[in-house]
Simulated scan of single mutants.
Amino acid sequence: MQILLCDQTDVIIEEIGALSPQFRQAGIPRSIETVWGNSLDDLKASYKMDGWTVTDKAPRASSSGNAQIFAVDAPQGGGPVVKQVQYSPANSDSMHIGQYYKFSYSDGATVKVIDPATYKVTGWPETNTTFYNQAGNKISYDAASNTWSAH
């Protein structure tokens, strides 16, 4: 099995076919559509179920200290893999203010799952980043109108 969190090409890898009842019952996220609302422990469990090692990391010293981060020691080969996961709860001291999840890939790509109503854009564009809303739908930011829209 592979973790089902999408990569920058918007392909959801579904090697296990239909979601296993044990994942659903445990509330473990297995796709980009099921990330929102999960804790960092839920996300870690998803990788651990695939036999990958996760290691907690401290937030950057220059940050608000709000982020919860873990590194993923995933098998290499077969394309980009998630190397780090960050969960940032909503916090007025954070530069983005709103809650978000960030998945960093081995090829430098980033995927963020955000609430477009609360995520504050700071500097634009965020290079090599694909954004999704809470339901797992791809979204784009229009800097001219300061709005998010679904694809």
Rank of each mutant, 00 (worst) to 15 (best):
Q2C: 00
Q2G: 06
L4G: 04
L5D: 01
C6T: 13
D7N: 11
I12R: 08
I13Q: 03
I13R: 12
E15Y: 06
E15M: 09
G17N: 10
A18Y: 15
S20M: 11
S20D: 09
Q22S: 07
R24T: 13
R24F: 14
Q25P: 05
A26D: 11
A26M: 02
A26C: 03
I28W: 01
S31F: 08
I32Y: 02
I32W: 02
I32F: 01
V35D: 02
V35N: 01
N38E: 05
S39G: 13
S39C: 11
K44M: 00
K44V: 00
K44I: 00
S46I: 00
M49Q: 04
D50S: 04
G51Y: 05
D56A: 05
K57D: 11
K57V: 06
P59L: 13
R60S: 15
R60W: 10
A61C: 04
A61T: 13
S62F: 06
S63T: 08
S64T: 14
G65W: 07
I69C: 09
I69T: 13
F70E: 02
F70T: 07
V72A: 07
V72F: 05
Q76R: 10
G78R: 12
G78N: 08
G78K: 06
G79I: 10
P80A: 15
V81F: 08
K83L: 09
V85C: 00
S88Q: 04
A90D: 07
S92I: 15
M95R: 09
H96D: 07
Q99C: 11
K102V: 08
Y105R: 07
S106K: 15
A109Q: 09
T110V: 07
V113C: 03
D115N: 15
P116Y: 06
Y119W: 05
V121F: 11
V121I: 07
P125G: 13
N128H: 14
F131C: 07
F131E: 12
Y132M: 08
Y132C: 05
Y132H: 01
Q134E: 15
Q134D: 12
A135R: 13
G136T: 09
S140D: 13
D142E: 13
A144Q: 14
S149W: 14
A150H: 04
H151N: 12
H151F: 12
